[in-house]
Computed example of a mutant assay.
Amino acid sequence: MSSPNGKSIYGDAEARRRRTLDAAAELLDEGGYTALTIRSVAARAGTSTGLIYQYFTDKQDIFATLLNESQLESARFVAALPRDRGVAALVAAVIPESARQWARIGRLAAVWRDLDAREGRDSTGARRTARESVGRLRVTAEQYNAELLRAITEAAQAEGRPLREDPAMLPFVLSGLMGVADTLVNNWAAHLDPADLVEFTADAITRGISR
Rank of each mutant, 00 (worst) to 15 (best):
G125Q: 05
D196C: 13
E142N: 15
A15I: 14
F200D: 15
L149K: 08
A35C: 09
A80L: 08
A109E: 07
E73M: 11
E26K: 13
R136E: 10
E142F: 10
R207C: 13
G120V: 10
A155Y: 01
L51H: 10
E119R: 13
M169I: 11
A126S: 08
V180F: 05
L149F: 05
R138I: 11
S175T: 14
N68K: 01
L72P: 01
T65P: 00
V78A: 05
V41D: 02
S133A: 15
W102G: 00
G46F: 12
F56M: 06
A151G: 06
G46K: 12
L184M: 11
A103K: 05
V198G: 03
R85Y: 06
F63E: 00
K7E: 14
I52Y: 02
H191S: 15
E30R: 13
V94N: 02
G31D: 04
A99L: 04
A110M: 12
L177F: 09
T140W: 03
L28C: 07
F172R: 07
R121Y: 14
S3E: 06
R131G: 04
E159Y: 06
R127P: 01
A110H: 07
G179Y: 11
T57S: 04
P96N: 09
D12E: 14
F172L: 14
Y53K: 15
W188S: 13
M178E: 11
S8D: 05
E142W: 09
R207A: 14
R138G: 12
I152M: 03
R104F: 03
M178Y: 09
